[in-house]
Design a protein around this nucleic acid. Structure first.
Length: 478
DNA sequence: TTTTGAGTTGTTCGA
DNA sequence: GTCGAACAACTCAAA
């Protein structure tokens, strides 16, 4: 008798409830990962996520070997592969940690029902949230749509459970079932655009712990003021690790508390509380995705269905390639392309630009982010884009339109960030770095810039675009 | 049922 | 240069 542990977005040994329960039961444990993009539907992992997944699976495989176990890889339909494994290994139990994406929820439910009918002990656990979506509700027993009351309710519900430590030993079966090679998943694309990812990231459980330690020991102290400055490392950079479950929010929450109790300085505690609040934004995103599953493809506010977005392929391409002529926007899009990640402040700026300046459907932006971000996460991506578009829960008011120049001046005053990602404008003086189109001819010449040649002219006039967007949004109201 | 207070991240204009 | 108001109601959640 043995137990299959079906790993998905919980690629870690520490604080892994499904794995822990399987080990506790005392039977041999067979960890398995199934590559099954088909059944994940439209929002299956994109290219950048695949790069990460490849590294993460390699790491997980090694960690399992170090505790006397092994990661069995399979590809194909999840249900069929699980059934095959059950037959091959005579397993009588299948454990996994839950996921919350609409199509995955439906698939998993179907599998669980079928396994139970077949007499298999199928159990799922909470491995990736502090508060599961159905445990938090308003006094009127409805889901929350506003963050602050949601967060208050979460806090009032009590502290998250303590994380479980990683197993030191996992009981192996007498014979292992067949596993395919990781390269059969064909996760790494033929175009080698991901070189920059390798320098930037250390996927895997130990990489996640190191990132957390670095953040709590160093960067968190300037979190509240620094997290908006894209040129410095003041954010945790844990998003891809969290997405793939290389670290759990429980581990993060408790690590913060532990450090808080030790540090005891008012400043540290305040800064770290700001960070924990962001962790709950992730929870809120999952809450919304679970209760409003249609929001991955449809605006939560129905009147936005009839918004007249422009079909402007050329502008969309310019945005994707970081060639809009607005340095802060272009820098962000290029950071994304080269590192698979973009600073949060800049995500808002580029999103606002696509939606409000170019009047392009937020879903186009969501799709691009989905394919190019290593931390692409359906809950966070959906909430973020709908928030900027103003069509989601607790969204930004429609008149809140980011001015790319003002935002650049405010959060990248010295131009360190734009210079890093747009080397061709590196010699433009600070005064003009965020608006080269207004710089005097001789300044541009000295800096080696020829607008329209080696750096684009602005794709649109922001002041004009802003007025237009306000008109369109006002029309929606009427 | 009605009332009340509040709501992540902004910009512009005019005094 | 700085500061407060306007932008525009609307929806949510709790009392």
């Amino acid at each position: 008798m043995s137990c299959l542990v079906w790993l998905r977005l919980d690629l870690r040994l520490g604080d892994n409830p499904a794995l822990f329960e399987a080990i506790k039961a005392g039977d041999p444990v067979i960890p398995v990962y199934i590559h099954d993009p088909e059944s994940e539907g439209k929002w299956r992992h994109g290219s950048a996520s695949h790069w990460w997944l490849q590294q993460s699976l390699e790491k997980l495989s090694k960690s399992l070997e170090s505790v006397g176990s092994k990661l069995i890889l399979r590809r194909g339909d999840s249900q069929r592969e699980l059934n095959k494994l059950i037959q091959e290994t005579r397993a009588e139990k299948v454990f996994w940690n839950r996921r919350y994406e609409p199509e995955v929820v439906a698939r998993d439910k179907k599998i669980k029902d079928a396994l139970k009918v077949a007499g298999i002990d199928a159990q799922s656990f909470n491995g990736s949230l502090l508060t599961e979506p159905w445990t938090i509700q308003t006094g009127g027993k409805t889901p929350f749509k506003v963050f602050t009351p949601y967060w208050n309710k979460c806090v009032a519900t009590g502290d998250p459970d303590a994380p479980i430590s990683a197993p030191k030993k996992i009981l192996a079966p007498s014979a292992w079932p067949k596993s395919c090679a990781l390269k059969e998943f064909a996760l790494i694309p033929s175009i080698k655009w991901y070189d920059g990812f390798t320098r930037e990231w250390r996927p895997g459980e130990s990489g996640a712990q190191e990132e957390l330690d670095l953040f709590l020991n160093k960067n968190v102290i300037q979190y509240l003021s620094g997290r908006d400055i894209p040129s410095i490392r003041a954010t945790s950079r844990l998003s891809p690790h969290l997405h793939f479950g290389e670290i759990s929010p429980r581990q993060i929450w408790h690590a913060v508390q532990k450090k808080s109790a030790k540090t005891k300085t008012v400043g540290w505690i305040k800064q770290s509380e700001g960070f924990v609040r962001q962790l709950y934004w992730r929870e809120f995103a999952y809450h919304l995705l679970y209760h409003f599953p249609q929001t991955t493809d449809h605006p939560l506010r129905k009147e936005f269905e009839k918004f007249e977005w422009k079909k402007d392929i050329k502008s969309l391409k310019a945005w994707q390639q970081g060639k809009t002529g607005y340095p802060i926007v272009d820098a962000g899009m290029r950071e994304l392309w080269h590192t698979g990640w973009m600073h949060n402040r800049v995500r808002m700026i580029v999103a606002s630009f696509l939606i409000k300046d170019l009047v392009i459907d937020w879903k186009e932006g969501a799709r691009w982010f989905w394919d190019t971000l290593v931390d692409a996460d359906l809950a966070n991506n959906t909430l973020g884009w709908q928030w900027v578009a103003g069509c989601g829960a607790d969204a930004a008011p429609y008149f809140r339109i980011f001015n790319p120049f003002t935002q650049g001046e405010k959060f990248d005053g010295e131009g360190a960030y734009v210079r890093r990602w747009i080397p061709e404008i590196a010699n433009v003086p600070n005064k003009w770095i965020h608006r080269p189109w207004e710089a005097p001819a001789e300044v541009l010449k000295t800096a080696g810039i020829e607008l329209g040649k080696n750096y684009p002219r602005p794709l649109v006039d922001h002041a004009h675009a802003r007025k237009l967007a306000l008109v369109l949004y006002a029309r929606l109201k009427a």
